[in-house]
Design a protein around this nucleic acid. Structure first.
Length: 749
RNA sequence: UGGGGUAUCGCCAAGCGGUAAGGCAUCAGCUUUUGGUGCUGACAUUCGGGGGUUCGAAUCCCUCUACCCCAUCCA
């Protein structure tokens, strides 16, 4: 279990713990209380609280309530409820960004005093214009020139409510020409004469997300601030604020993951609201909604939601999870937990003509493979109901249930066979006259009759009538956009389903499996024993024979990709390219890489002056050195062209393998040590002597007989496996060319 | 002057230079008094495309392509 692969966030956390960057990790779940939480929030809750739990840390629940016009306390209740329902504990008080307003305000003043923030008095329209566009730089407002004292005064007045909304704004002074739009002097505070649901009317100014969030994280001692991908661009501000305020360490860092998408589901708060407001659904807890309240009302267990979140993983790729995965989670959870019970959704009367009197049949609540105890008595008499779909006068091939010439077992009871079909004037079947086999009773069956199916049934007089709400997916499209994509049949209400009496009278549970139908939940609001109402949580999995859909053959078409045009080389680059290919005999790809990059070509030239080994030099420079030079200048490098030349010299002299060369290079790039020194101190001279290599190879081969067999069976890829093992055994020092040869030969016989 | 991300099976997703994990879905077979469950097996000669480096590349380099995010006084 411990070897399970970790997601990238947990890996970061582990690294930070190991390096003692933090000695305890703190996360937070920071929703804005402006809507009902949905399964996307569940993912975030599962990540933040889950990570805290896994690493003995702590997770805060924080309401990010910086926008008084959209937020409300009913949402904070729903949010708290969601976290609790999922089984997490925020230990202590719920946090509110609004509780930090004073401190955040003081930080703003500090920024002003540092000359890093200013009061801007441009209008909304102008601010937008000044910001520039994605492809053009912005320009700074003239108000950025205001003196610190003036800024302080103005900001104070803003706070005191002396200005109307939109009159002024506090901005950070960063860079109006930043390629990151978010960094073009981001807004820090805006004037808002609104009542805040917690702070009341104390404030006339409210901090923006970008200012409040990082500081709130910092004040709470958060170490890992985990949010969704769309905040990637905001990370720069996050860091800027915390860095320029030069706060006492440790400070939090932001990490982003992909938000959850599920097909046939809509997750946007705004659009969800639209559904509720247009009465397309019955409130926020409509069981068809992907809200936590919806799932809860539908009958999903917290565990199933958590399992789902764990199952889908955490990554940075935008993705769309199949609803089937969610449905699996709830089935899988309920399968081992919930009593099985008989319910007939669509009753068809069956009279057993040769049965007299009545009896009670003992029936276990759980099937043989669920290790739980419990049973009830099923009343039985000559008049029963079965489901309409369990009888067919003219069955297709492969139909397992009752037909004029096929007997069926009444689950836990007797085998019956059809004697007569009674129809009404419209030709609709209204009753079946059947006979039972007295010696076929479950558990004491001596009839010798083999049936293909055992169906659910209820006794006519004892059965209770219930309402069943059968839910289907809310949308008919895989990627629904809104109301227009609604599935018209997402709710079907069955008013007079019949259920065995024990379910209502004993109420052994709230969730049941109605055998052969699915999992159902006693509606927490509308259910009463006089008027029982059940929600269908999810159907049972149906295998092919039952749904008898033709398997679809999807042809795989390889997409043809048209390459775009490559930017032409400049004249200088062209000349270099010429030289590289003609004089130095470099291949055109390497020559191209070198010629197009000033830093690389300069580096290469210098190295070449040290050692006339153009190809090997060019190769390592266009590959390894290029990586380093992506983010650095030549003078920032810890190593020189001369050292690279030295390294290549060792390869040329066959002192070391290219594999070792990479190791040496890494070390050199990190420490700046001389390659020769590294090789000597670590004893990395390569081993090419077969006399030394052969015994090692022998040992590896002995240890992996099954892989030898597979290799001989034609899996030639395994050669790489053996080479890898041998190289590992020699700590990388084996000459891979020689090892390859030797292993190849040895494996043949 | 654009920048920041992402791409591995139908859907998620591991993998960090040495045998392409796992789950969902699907398809077989066995078990089954649920057409459920369970068990067994099948399911990527290949990692968005093309090159290059290497004995060896999903992993390193170059390049192209596609998709997502950013120009709210929202978060």
């Amino acid at each position: 279990m411990e070897n399970k692969s970790k997601d990238f966030l947990r890996r970061v956390v582990e690294k930070d713990l190991k390096s003692n960057k933090y000695n305890k990790i703190v996360t937070r779940f920071p929703p804005e209380p402006n809507g009902f939480p949905h399964i996307g929030h569940a993912k975030s809750i599962s990540i933040n609280f889950g990570i805290a739990k896994d690493y003995q840390g702590h997770c805060n629940l924080r309401m990010d309530d910086t926008n008084p016009t959209t937020e409300d306390t009913q949402y904070v209740e729903a949010l708290k409820d969601a976290v609790e329902w999922l089984g997490f504990d925020w230990e202590g008080n719920v946090r509110y960004t609004s509780d930090y307003f004073d401190e955040i305000y003081n930080y703003a003043i500090r920024l002003i005093k540092m000359g890093k923030a200013y009061v801007d008095s441009l209008g909304e329209e102008e601010i937008r214009e000044y910001r520039g566009t994605v492809k053009s730089v912005g320009k700074r407002s003239k108000y950025a020139e205001r003196s610190i004292t003036e800024n302080l005064e103005l900001f104070e007045k803003m706070k005191n409510g002396e200005f109307s909304e939109g009159k002024h704004i506090l901005r950070a002074k960063i860079d109006m020409s930043s390629p990151n739009m978010k960094m073009r002097d981001p807004l820090l505070y805006r004037i808002r004469h609104a009542h805040h649901f917690r702070a009341g009317d104390k404030w006339a100014i409210y901090p923006m997300y970008d200012f409040a969030h990082c500081l709130s994280d910092y004040m709470e001692g958060v170490t890992h601030s985990i949010c969704t991908l769309e905040f990637e661009n905001n990370r720069d501000i996050y860091n800027w604020v915390l860095d320029t305020l030069s706060l006492n360490p440790p400070r939090p860092y932001q990490h982003e993951f992909a938000r959850l998408g599920i097909n046939y589901t809509m997750m946007s708060k705004r659009k969800l609201l639209e559904l509720v407001e247009n009465d397309a659904v019955n409130g926020w807890d409509d069981p068809r909604l992907p809200t936590i309240a919806g799932y809860k009302r539908r009958g999903y267990t917290p565990q199933s939601i958590l399992n789902f979140c764990e199952g889908i993983g955490i990554a940075k790729a935008n993705s769309m999870v199949d609803v089937a995965q969610l449905e699996f989670s709830i089935r899988d959870d309920l399968n081992t937990k919930v009593p099985r019970v008989l319910c007939v959704m669509n009753p068809l009367k069956v009279t057993i003509t040769n049965y007299q009197g009545s009896e009670e049949i003992e029936a276990s609540y759980y099937p043989h493979d669920v290790p739980k105890e419990g049973s009830r008595k099923l009343p039985f008499s000559k008049e029963i109901y079965i489901d309409r779909s369990d009888f067919k006068q003219n069955p297709d091939k492969g139909y397992f249930r009752l037909t004029p010439n096929q007997a069926v077992r009444l689950k836990y009871a007797y085998i019956i066979s059809c004697q007569e079909i009674i129809k009404d004037e419209n030709g609709e079947i209204i009753e079946i006259k059947a006979e039972y086999y007295p010696n076929s009773k479950s558990g004491e069956d001596k009839s010798g009759i083999k049936v293909k199916s055992a169906i659910q049934w209820v006794e006519k007089n004892a059965a209770k009538e219930i309402e069943v709400r059968v839910y289907d997916r809310l949308f008919k499209n895989e990627a629904p956009q809104g109301i227009e994509d609604l599935n018209p049949n997402s709710l079907q209400i069955i008013k007079n389903a019949l259920i065995e009496p024990a379910v209502i009278t004993d109420k052994p549970d709230e969730r049941f499996q109605f055998e052969r139908e699915g999992y159902f939940y006693a509606d927490p609001i509308d259910y009463s024993s006089e008027f029982p109402v059940f929600n269908k949580i999810v159907g049972l999995k149906e295998s092919s024979a039952k749904k008898k859909k033709a398997p679809q053959v999807v042809e795989k078409i390889k997409k043809i990709q048209i390459d775009g045009e490559v930017v032409a080389m400049s004249e200088d680059q062209e000349a270099l390219f010429e030289k590289y290919t003609k004089e130095d005999k470099l291949n055109s790809e390497v020559a191209n890489t070198l010629a197009r990059d000033k830093k690389l070509s300069a580096f290469y030239q210098e190295a070449l002056n040290e050692l006339k080994s153009p190809i090997n030099l060019a190769n390592i420079i266009s590959n390894e050195v290029a990586r380093e030079l992506k983010s650095k200048e030549i003078n920032e490098l810890k190593f020189s062209p001369k050292q690279i030349a030295e390294l290549i010299k060792m390869i040329d002299d066959e002192l070391i393998s290219t594999k070792i060369a990479k190791v040496v290079y890494e070390e050199m790039a990190k420490s700046g040590k001389n390659p020769k020194q590294i090789v000597e101190s670590k004893g990395l001279i390569q081993i090419s002597d077969p006399k030394i290599l052969l015994p090692i190879i022998e040992e590896i081969i002995d240890k992996n007989p099954d892989n030898v067999e597979k290799f001989r069976g034609g899996n030639t890829k395994l050669l790489g496996f053996f080479v890898g093992q041998v190289l590992k055994a020699t700590k990388g020092k084996g000459n891979p060319k020689v090892v390859n040869l030797l292993v190849g030969e040895r494996l043949k016989d």
